[in-house]
Amino acid sequence: MSAPKQVATGDRAILPEGAKTIPIYVMGKRYEVPETLTIMKAMEFAGFKFLRGAGCRGGICGACPTVYRKEGDYKLYFGLACQTVVEPNMYLAQIPFYPANRAVYDIEQIEPLADAVHALYPEIFRCVACNNCSKACPMKVEVLDYISAIKQGDLARAAKLSFDCIQCGMCASRCMGELPQYHIAQLVRRLYGKYIQPGAEHLQKRVAQIESGKYDGMLAELQKMSHAELEKIYKEREREPDMVPLGTWMPKDVSHL
């Protein structure tokens, strides 16, 4: 049998068979690019090499927020360049950075209370509930809702509502009240994770066992084992059944727990 042929072609944009090109306007200048590409790959196709404005290329780092209008349409659209597919006659500009105020705090000292958040970010009360932020959010986060939850003191709700935020800064760029929404949300999520969400007790027990040196001997023994010995135990491992609830199953051999 011959070696398998490779089928993928890296990240260089490939033109799907029969694809046509469409005009887009990068900061007002016209380029012809293949349809079906993302804004990012279309710009690279046109010859741009990103320095700013590209990070993960997978929709999660927030480096590539882009604002655009379509010809003949009054609306302003927002998207991630690495995720949004080009459309004919879109006029786009990337906004890879937008300045926002960030308060410094000490996570060990701060109290997990709305008052503490309000004290660090008094501008939160400048929110006029215009909802520009939610409209601008490429992750469809309900920004106004989390800001309102924080104002009302419901930090847990705000933590959950803001969870998908990738800190791209679009909301802050559109804010009537000049808020740095995503920095406030980050603070709230850390307060939630550290103080409000219940701690993992089994984890604390395991930490104590490790610190007592319980596993040092076992790990030393494993490191000395031959390939054959290891392979034997590896094959004999008992597998925790998929559908049993956590914390209820125990293996027959408990000598190495």
Binding site: H202, R206, Y215, M218, E240, L246, W249
Partner: peptide
């Protein structure tokens, strides 16, 4: 971290 598990496994 779970009880049925350990650094050994």
């Amino acid at each position: 971290t779970q009880e049925c598990d350990s650094p050994y496994y």
